[in-house]
Write a protein that binds this DNA or RNA. Sequence first.
DNA 1: TTTTTTTGGATGTATGTACAAATCGAAAAT
DNA 2: ATTTTCGATTTGTACATACATCCAAAAAAA
Lengths: 361, 361
Amino acid sequence: MEEYKYLAIVEWGKNYIAKEHLQPNDRFLSEKELCTIHGVSRQTVRQALKCLENENVISRVRGSGTYVKNVAVQQSEQPKRVGVISTYFSDYIFPQIVTGIERVLNDAGIVMQLSTTHNQVYEEAQALRTMIANGVQGLIVEPSKSALPNPNMQLYREIKEQHIPLVFFNAKYPWSDFPYVAMDDEAAGEIVTNYLFDCGHQRISGIFALDDIQGHKRYGGFMKSCIAHNIRTAEKDVLWFATAEKSYIFKYARTKLLEMLVNSTAIVCYNDELAVNLLRFCRENDIKVPDDVSVVGIDDSKFSTLCDVPLTTVHHPHKVLGERVARKLIEQMNAPEDAQDDVIFHPELIVRDSVRSFERR
Amino acid sequence: MEEYKYLAIVEWGKNYIAKEHLQPNDRFLSEKELCTIHGVSRQTVRQALKCLENENVISRVRGSGTYVKNVAVQQSEQPKRVGVISTYFSDYIFPQIVTGIERVLNDAGIVMQLSTTHNQVYEEAQALRTMIANGVQGLIVEPSKSALPNPNMQLYREIKEQHIPLVFFNAKYPWSDFPYVAMDDEAAGEIVTNYLFDCGHQRISGIFALDDIQGHKRYGGFMKSCIAHNIRTAEKDVLWFATAEKSYIFKYARTKLLEMLVNSTAIVCYNDELAVNLLRFCRENDIKVPDDVSVVGIDDSKFSTLCDVPLTTVHHPHKVLGERVARKLIEQMNAPEDAQDDVIFHPELIVRDSVRSFERR
DNA sequence: TTTTTTTGGATGTATGTACAAATCGAAAAT
DNA sequence: ATTTTCGATTTGTACATACATCCAAAAAAA
């Protein structure tokens, strides 16, 4: 079959190891033996052995002999790697989401490569490039600044061309056609606002993130509820902030905030993190929650139960979402052109103590 | 310099390509030319060329000649990967530690592969094996059940043999000789206990984890302080628990706990997580902290400020520790036989409201 | 019994020769 | 002008020999 003698010996050697059930570190035939078996010169045998060594089938030890290498190493390839890129992962609800992802990937024998963007598109580009160069078999990405124009479109195109499966979570870029897994953010905004109306509130303000789609959608739900209740919410009743400045708005938008707190009976917050900070702001300014003003958050983070006034909020599936994202990716890796549909979790209201009810329903 | 002729030619060839500024696909010298240049046989030249081919420096074409390969491919390799294996990463102080690690690795252009063991040695084995098979260039590991016999010794030996740099954090296995980065746990235990004595407490109990070295060391510091203050702490004043059962001890050790709370004026807790749970247990049993009993924790986790009674505890360097671990590993990757020393952070007492002072000092 | 030395056998390096197979350009034939 | 043929050159395969270096077990010495 083989044209060349040394290649014939290579094949013969592989079969020999299999046939004789040689275990790792078992001794292989010596060069001399192979010479007499095949009736060739030692040089030819050596060339064959060199090949087998390059293929990691055997290892040769000067003065000792030739030995069989670990066959397991040979057949069981490298475990798959998947890149996970999120904005943060140490705070808020992110640890739980990432834990969910890690659990599913781990069970599937997949290694997770983690990177964070701190919601910066430049870091997102960096992370994506590194992951691609690293040869990941799949990507799970939480978009950064999903509501603003994104300079990384070209990178995502490349990913598409290279047929690397990708799933977004929490948000997706409007121009991309990768599937995503998220909570129904519009519904979340609507549910909390509806609840406030149900409790008898009439003057309701909102604070939303301006640079991500979640902020826009939650605002959308808020407005939808307002319109449904015939409340014409003026521009001044909504405060927009950039997520990078989430901690500073209490300084530089102080007057507007205080005005809102006086003119409103309830505030819808973009998320629990903001809501908790707002609670502190209220305390510092002698505004009582929920007596003077009611506050609602979204996401049901851990802090929502630990703060002074347990927060009425909307449950975010956290870990379950993480698990679903990871499963979604695995589905895609197995059946690339299948399972392109999005997964949307329907939110659920969690009532705690931060909303005053006007006893009217 | 080189002992063997063919190796000398390999080196000479690399220099030649550099010196002559040969571009990719430029023609290299023929075998015959090399023979006359170096005054060796053709076989020897061929052996050298074989090496250069294996190193991806040249490519040979039968009947045509030998050509220079893309040098760019050669130098800009895949980004490095480092495996991070911790017990948990979504709770407690772990997110901050991992964030520190991630930040430093990221700045160094290194990709982080994360895996958690849930403090199970089997999962640790699994993670280590996967990481090794994956060809990581370094490992950062938080030992699981560091105080109990560990079945993964063989794996760590393999890592040593393969010269994969490894740094432990928080704890290290006593039988291993990898460096580690941690807080001085004994000092931490001593500092809180000393503080209790300073506040006038005499009957002090402790609750410690039995399966990790941190638990043993913190217990050691606790005992050291007791002995220094001439308090003979009986066995019944110490409650040991397995970390896997950290949530259940309030059920199955209920009577012993209540007894301890009655007989003592202060309790030293293994860490803040336990302390916070103890606070809840006290509240449920109408025991007032710090009026009836004082509680101290260790680690200065986020929960220590958020719970009902802000916790007196010891500061753990969290993020700084994470950063230091990562830098330590990078040092090791650059200078393998250097930087084998441990890094120990000295702890610092954080006084809050969970300790009653008997106004005696 | 323990330690040291010897020795046989294994792989590694180096050289020589011969022929095979592929490439490529120049000369020859169409 | 195009195609074919041929030959020089180059790398690939194969065999033969000699010595080097290392390992490990057997033999000898302490």
